[in-house]
């Protein structure tokens, strides 16, 4: 039986990178006594996959990983047992059953939404104007240095929704394996015209949801799944 676990990550633990978070979660699953399935072979490991790595410094309201369990016995207590083994800042929100044929978490991800809170209060006015301009523009170019040279991209194609409110920026963008847009690239596109350069520590970056595509709509990764009771 496959399960999809939704969790949040807040506070100091945002400085723990993706791989270390994953190692922590593996230990928590083991300590919680979840009957997780292990791979065969010399060094068996848990059948576990994270949907979308969360970068160092980023918080999240809604992250996902899939696990496979060998039994559903006691499943009503899975969430509680897991939460007992979590650390400060990590919390399991929901656990869902995943149909046998469902795509894995990682392959399903198509978009993600973010919220950005700027430390510099004076930015609110500029932000509002920049977002307005972005919404009205046909094309906002972004440049990314790659091994094969500078790659150009139209941010308008990658950003599906964008708005600002009370000095905070909300947006949803491409998070597919081929076209993932880094939030910092959007910020660059918004603020470079104003001669403003933002560093990662100039704002709080919170991922608010991770989406899959269903019938050409972006829906949360847990949409349509049955919650484990």
């Amino acid at each position: 039986m496959k399960l999809r676990v939704r969790f949040s990550k807040f506070g100091p633990i945002k400085f723990i990178g993706h791989l270390d978070t994953m190692r922590f979660v593996q230990k928590a699953i083991k300590a919680a006594g979840i009957p997780v399935k292990y791979t065969e072979g010399f060094s068996p490991h848990q059948v576990l996959s994270f949907a979308f790595p969360l970068g160092v410094g980023m918080e999240s309201e809604s992250e996902y990983f899939d696990i496979e369990v060998v039994s559903m016995e006691g499943s009503e207590a899975f969430k509680e047992s897991l939460n007992r083994e979590m650390c400060e800042g990590l919390a399991v929100l929901d656990i869902y059953e995943l149909p046998k044929k469902a795509k894995g978490a990682m392959a399903s991800v198509s978009a993600a939404s973010y919220r950005i809170r700027f430390h510099e209060e004076g930015l609110a006015g500029i932000l509002e104007e920049a977002v307005c301009k972005f919404q009205g523009a046909k094309e906002v170019k972004s440049y990314k240095e790659t091994k094969t040279g500078i790659k150009e991209r139209n941010l308008k194609d990658a950003v599906y929704q964008i708005e600002s409110e009370d000095g905070e920026l909300f947006f949803m963008c491409d998070a597919s394996s081929g076209g993932n847009l880094k939030p910092s690239a959007l910020l660059e596109g918004l603020f470079t015209p104003y001669g403003i350069v933002l560093n990662a520590w100039d704002y709080d970056l919170i991922r608010t949801e991770v989406y899959k595509t269903e019938e050409e709509n972006y829906v949360p990764l847990c949409e349509g799944l049955k919650r484990v009771q």
């Binding site: 400085f15 160092v56 410094g57 979590m86 800042g89």
Partner: peptide, 16 residues
């Protein structure tokens, strides 16, 4: 500071 230094996890505590 924490984003600039190597292995910030060394300094934040909060371990299980």
């Amino acid at each position: 500071i924490l984003l600039k230094i190597d292995k910030p996890a060394r300094y934040i505590g909060g371990e299980k």
